[in-house]
Design a protein around this nucleic acid. Structure first.
Lengths: 143, 143
DNA sequence: CTGCTTGCAAAGGCTTTGCAGAACA
DNA sequence: TGTTCTGCAAAGCCTTTGCAAGCAG
């Protein structure tokens, strides 16, 4: 992983432009929250973080914006929990630990895990991403 | 992968007993559908398949049963799409291809991909599962 | 009888949508 | 002035839950 945190407002805007995203005020606010530190947040959390001081963005816009960011490759969608999607600002290749007891999601360096070359893909398809998730549970809490 | 398909009614019941699941009529019906062939089905699909001829099982029971099966290790939950959970009867180690264009999920032999030993896990946790998903998209249908 | 299962319908949580008003070029 | 965004509220979808009736041992 080799992303930098936090990103300044100007850096965020620059990054958005690079990805072809029109840096409107709301989008910049949302992006700044995402790129303040490495983290894994749900749409609801983003909504809360952005509006912590005063209402800045609506729920609909948060959802639309996160979807746009993911589609444009500004952030990565991580799907490990059927009840919500996590958004990960770190786009450099890496994997995840998911604690099924706590719902916590943690980054794992890409080179912590040896991954051979990809097998032949189904015909007519090309690889878009490789997601590796190691599900862990607390040692104490057994069964 | 080394599971056998399809499983007879008796084999299904036997398997359920091994996993500590009381083989009630509805559960056996559901399990038979799941173990009829290697596949990846959502709860709704299971509901439709089981009740194809006549109403046999309710929606609530399908959800409860699939949850129970997953918890007992009879089937594997595959989470690749935030809108629904897939249930996979193949429990032998393997990975998946997920076609984001079609929503199709395909099995991939475990040994198609070299996976080194696990990195050190977060403190106080033990590995429960390693999920590898290769997201692919159709070559033609591009952006 | 006693406990485990089932089913219906209602509730719940997360996400998307329709559409009108606002912002921006 | 035309296009792109935003926001509110309503709708949608999948899943869970409460609770009474059913079934098995």
């Amino acid at each position: 992983m080799m992303n930098k945190y936090p990103l300044s407002r100007a850096e965020v805007i620059d990054l958005m432009r690079q990805k072809g995203i029109n840096p409107t005020q709301q989008r910049v606010e949302i992006a700044q929250v995402l790129f303040s530190e490495p983290q894994h947040v749900s749409a609801d959390q983003v909504l809360a973080m952005v509006n912590r001081k005063r209402p800045i963005v609506s729920k609909a816009t948060v959802y639309n914006t996160l979807g746009l960011f993911a589609q444009k490759g500004l952030v990565r969608e991580v799907i490990v929990d059927p009840t919500k999607v996590f958004y990960d600002p770190t786009t450099a290749p890496h994997h995840h630990f998911y604690n099924v007891d706590t719902g916590e999601l943690m980054d794992m360096d890409a080179d912590s895990l040896t991954l051979g070359e990809l097998p032949s893909l189904p015909e007519g398809t090309e690889a878009e991403a490789v997601d590796v998730v190691i599900r862990v549970r607390n040692t104490a809490a057994s069964c």
